[in-house]
Design a protein around this nucleic acid. Sequence first.
DNA 1: ATATCATTGTACCAATCGGTACAATCATTG
DNA 2: CAATGATTGTACCGATTGGTACAATGATAT
Lengths: 186, 186
Amino acid sequence: MKTVYERADIVPLLAEIFRELGYEGTSLSRITERTGLGKGSLYHFFPGGKEEMANAVLAEIDAWFEQAIYRPLRQDDARQAIAAMWVNVNDYFRSGRRICLVGAFALDDTRERFSAAIGDYFIRWIGAVRSALSRAGYSDDEAQALAEEGVAGIQGALVLARALGDERIFIRSLETLAKRFEAATR
Amino acid sequence: MKTVYERADIVPLLAEIFRELGYEGTSLSRITERTGLGKGSLYHFFPGGKEEMANAVLAEIDAWFEQAIYRPLRQDDARQAIAAMWVNVNDYFRSGRRICLVGAFALDDTRERFSAAIGDYFIRWIGAVRSALSRAGYSDDEAQALAEEGVAGIQGALVLARALGDERIFIRSLETLAKRFEAATR
DNA sequence: ATATCATTGTACCAATCGGTACAATCATTG
DNA sequence: CAATGATTGTACCGATTGGTACAATGATAT
């Protein structure tokens, strides 16, 4: 039996802090304050400091999307997997109350530090959606364009929802995007 | 004749720094280094410090969008104004190499500080597009939904372009959005 | 030429930054 | 029980943070 926390328990807490404050805005003191873990514990689990913490968070995010979003899109029934994506995305981002950490990292200098993980995230997301659309019968070009439109639309909807403090615009945006996809897959 | 710089000359420099580094990531030392102005000058022009600098930048951005984007959309020929928007947006954001400062501020804790300006920016942008679409003959609901889709699509395209370091995806996204608008206004 | 006010560089401030060192404590195992 | 290794709190580090004070310099108007 381990102590109260192990590494895997801390990562989700870190994710939420990075999400709210951004990489630069997240200080060790805020981490200590919100996790209840002192520097001793933090540097024990993450000897590489803040950067290792952020990398652990990015890895966990990648793993979640892989199993919940990408894999179904690549393997399962195309229409079903796309329908599930809208639901899962809405849940994961709490209807726009939660932002996309990867998208946020991409927008400022933080990108330099994590460019590989950031690029991967979107490449694989778009690729998985394209795969599903291809199986639904569309040409590579059409599938690629619609996949990009979908992922970009989600990211944009997150920005709008946060900017306006209104989750309805997020839900509405997802519905609009879903209609675009339905029109293309019938 | 004033000295080399006046307030209005500094604001665009500040805008570029905030864009690249984010609000938290922008330190006075970086500002000094990139503008060539010491603290004496900076606090002379912006007694309120970093926050006043950011507010000045946001005000300038708002003024630019008002004259270049919003006003034409509200007053000029609807189809023409929309076509001009795609071109101006592509130029302004340097095909995705430059990010939207307001969108970036919206994504982290910085939003708390500038929520009024951030909300205004998107409300007015969406409102202006809706106005043009309404004049092009569409119902309020349709116009609102398409306006939201357009603005969100632009923001999402900026995220993708930065994340992938690829400006072609930005240009491609704008073209896709433009087609959606054309389909709706004919 | 002098008075005035805008502009600037520099020294300085307390607070906080990310990170290190290490002794104390904890649970586990032999 | 003793030994071991994982976990933790605390003190401390130099560097940097945003901001202030102020004297020196610059330009301008009388």
